[in-house]
Design a protein around this nucleic acid. Sequence first.
RNA 1: GCUGACGUAGCUCAACGGUAGAGCAGCUGAUUUGUAAUCAGCAGGUUGGGGGUUCGAAUCCCUCCGUCAGCUCCA
Length: 592
Amino acid sequence: MLVKINFPRRLVRMEEGKEINKEQQLEVLRHSTSHVLAQAVKRLFPEAKLGIGPPIKDGFYYDFDIDGEVLSKNLSKIKEEMKKIIKEDLPFEKEVVSKEEAKRIFKEREEPYKLKLLEEIEDEKVSIYRQGEFVDLCRGPHLESTGKIKHFALLSVAGAYWHGKEGNPMLSRIYGTCFFTKQELENYLEWIEEAKRRDHRKLGRELGIFDIYPELGQGLAVYHPNGSLIREIIENFEKEEHLKRDYQLVRTPHISKAELWKISGHLDFYRENMYVFSIDGEEYVLKPMNCPGHIMVYKSKQRSYKELPIKLFELGTVYRREASGVLHGLLRLRGFTQDDAHIFCMPSQLIDEVREVLRFCLFMMDTFNLGYKVTLSTRPAKSIGSDDLWERSTSALKQALEKEGIEFEIAPGEGAFYGPKIDIQMRDALGRLWQGPTVQVDFNLPERFNLTYVASGGEKKRVVMIHRVVLGTIDRFLGVLIEHVEGKFPVWLAPVQARILTITDKETSYAREIYNNLKTQGIRVELDSRKEMLNYKIREAQLQKIPYMVILGKRERESRTLTVRKRDGENIKGIPVEEFVSMVKEKVTKRN
RNA sequence: GCUGACGUAGCUCAACGGUAGAGCAGCUGAUUUGUAAUCAGCAGGUUGGGGGUUCGAAUCCCUCCGUCAGCUCCA
């Protein structure tokens, strides 16, 4: 069907007169633009074979079987050709044909991927769309004509497997985007720039938080002093919050015998991601998870129903062999620290325990001012355990979510190999989603390790395990946080809360006195008494995104006060030290 | 892991077959300064590693390592 979009009032009607919403309008626009892209590529490079070209969240793409080099070298030429096609104002014409007829058309045009698509379509009739000399197999809908496209951009070229499957041939994909108005397009391009400015890898280096050294190893983060301090604060906060909620702190070794991981099933299901090595002829592994260690603690003595639930917490550093191409700053590492806990409970306690964990997670999101999106992931193809156990655990998670009144989506087949899970994605200041907390029910490990408790009747019963993290990993969380706050950490987390800036040498001794005072009162303070201009010192402190600059000149020295310049440029002139101290302390207590 | 792009001083970048250069940062000295860069001097590089083509390679070719954008995977 054709969609009539009347620019600029942007009234959109389907052929039958049914209205579609803004999002659907954008999809039509972008889908049509992807056809124009394909037409342009075919005009310039007739040897390119067409893959697919759908609209996506922020734009569209089109896949071509052609050397990717050709596309990336000619991106601007392709753009010019697209402009020509738009100028030609070719109508999009729909035609419904039999599958046989479609096969004939694409065979003649030598489009093997379109023929493969036809094989996968079950319907007898298919629709094709033509604009000028270009023909594509497509469900539509499209715009009336190419001339309706005004504001588009081509963004990048990258490889993508046919149908997204690893073994399939790699096609070359051009990403682009398109909007109704120039302003919207510009806003989007500006948004991309904004995201670049916030890149935690860049800020991480500039702010002395962390860095990754190829000579030390891929995917392994080194925390510099400021980063270590922030982590320390977050980790202490985590420990306190866990103790408050009756978790017990444990520690388990980084390496352990392979035999343990054979019992747990990891060596069968997770081996490709594990570092396995041998010591004195015996196989060991670097732990990819913390569960087996915690299970040892649980198993160390006979447990009674009276002591359940038992909740064991560890800031556990784990190592996973991730494919080199997926590594990405702190967001995707090979060694990282989870705020991991395992809750051992009776089946009857399961739903309440999950609910409590969910509340804990949302409390964390709230504390760090992050939005979130929740998904429930069900049984994957590669998994262990009976249908009945999967059914029971999935339903427990679902009920917990419902009872907490949390909105969620279902992700079929996305669960862990040992059980279903609830994933909480964190939504940052730019609206992007990042994998954060997760809660997983597990009936399998208790089975494999024979984990029991003595019930009230004296008989031994099987315990249930919940795996959960409330921030996810400290590393990834910090990476997200850096981008979320653009490196401007709230006062309670800022590695340096205040820097004292002197104007001349005459203030040095007064500045030292203030410095000692603030330091004694527990404020993280630095003193900049270099012989530099105030402007210079302010600029440096500003670039370091330090929340407070304490400026000391003649006026402050004589009145024994402070002038405080906040990170946002606001000035508080002539306040007593104690007032500043309580200002900072209040921010710390309130965690903002 | 796969596809493509890219690796030049601590950082950001120039030189693109003919003697490797700039800004910032660093060091030294001068400047005593009121809300985002004071001035001058000095030092800093086997151009990611290895191999090849060439009279001559940062520049062209091969290979390895790494980074980035995606794909697949994932906390």
